[in-house]
Amino acid sequence: MKWKVLKTSEDYQKAALRMMKIFHTEEEGPLLDELELLIVLIKDYDDRNHPLTKPDPIQTIIVKMEEMGIKAKDLVPLIGSKGHVSAVLSGKREITLKMAQKLRDFFQLPAEVFL
């Protein structure tokens, strides 16, 4: 099959099925070239139709706090006073680089999540 830019869900499904069929191809040649092209086309379709959104830093903190069973007061060493913690969690105060670094280490997440 001659592949082109995937524009419809049907095109995407056909490409995905073909990719899965030839996925374990290792030998050089037209089959490997087709696999590499399908991977690029599928990624392009996904990027255009299902873009990833950047996680909300405050929501990430709240979710991680719930997962770890901690309260806002436990963030005082990372963010500052109770007032600072409250202001950050309510979105009234920005997360600084220093805070992001401490939150990164504490929650073991990339600092970019908090910036």
Rank of each mutant, 00 (worst) to 15 (best):
L32C: 01
L32S: 06
L32G: 01
D33V: 08
D33Y: 09
D33S: 10
E34K: 05
E34Q: 09
I39A: 13
L41P: 03
L41I: 11
L41Q: 11
D44C: 04
Y45D: 07
Y45V: 05
Y45I: 03
D46L: 11
D47T: 14
D47N: 15
R48Q: 13
R48N: 12
N49C: 11
H50K: 14
L52M: 13
T53S: 07
K54E: 12
P55Y: 13
D56H: 11
I58E: 00
T60Q: 05
V63K: 05
V63R: 03
K64H: 09
K64S: 08
K64L: 11
M65Y: 13
M65W: 10
M65G: 08
E66M: 02
E66C: 00
E67T: 10
E67C: 04
G69F: 12
I70F: 04
I70S: 04
K71C: 06
K71D: 06
K71G: 06
K73W: 04
K73H: 08
L75M: 07
L75F: 03
V76Y: 01
V76S: 06
L78C: 04
I79A: 03
G80V: 01
G80S: 00
G80W: 00
S81E: 05
K82G: 10
G83K: 15
H84P: 00
H84D: 02
H84R: 12
H84N: 07
S86Y: 14
V88Y: 01
V88E: 00
S90N: 14
G91T: 03
K92L: 02
K92P: 01
K92S: 03
E94N: 12
I95C: 01
T96Y: 06
T96W: 06
L97T: 15
L97C: 07
L97Q: 14
K98L: 09
M99K: 15
M99G: 11
M99C: 10
A100F: 07
Q101I: 08
Q101A: 10
K102G: 10
D105Y: 07
D105A: 14
D105I: 10
F106L: 14
F106E: 01
F107N: 04
F107V: 10
F107T: 08
Q108E: 10
L109Y: 04
L109A: 11
L109S: 11
A111M: 10
A111Q: 10
E112N: 01
V113R: 09
